[in-house]
Amino acid sequence: MSPIGLNHFLGLGAVLFCLGAYGVLTRRNAIAVLMSLELMFNAVNLNLVAFARFLPNLDGVVLAVFVIAVAAAEAAVGVALVLSIYRNFRHIDLDQVDTMKG
């Protein structure tokens, strides 16, 4: 088997990012959209760590730690918003949450 280089990890990150983007675009359930967002965060993190490992430069790992912290904060606020939407609408179907639509 051919040796694994930086391009393999970057390609896997690109595939994972596009799968997450597809989920964000097509899912109607708010929690499923949040899950797809986590996939995209992970793709970005994978790229950062691969760069940090192959270039090599430790700053990519530091940035990945920051991204994980921000993702945790995002998930907490996102779940709070989902629960708030559920309390007001009794569902979390994003296509029907259009009260502010002009």
Binding site: L12, G20, Y22, A32, S36
Partner: peptide, 8 residues
Amino acid sequence: TGCALAVI
């Protein structure tokens, strides 16, 4: 990738 496909 398989689990990501299952997620979406």
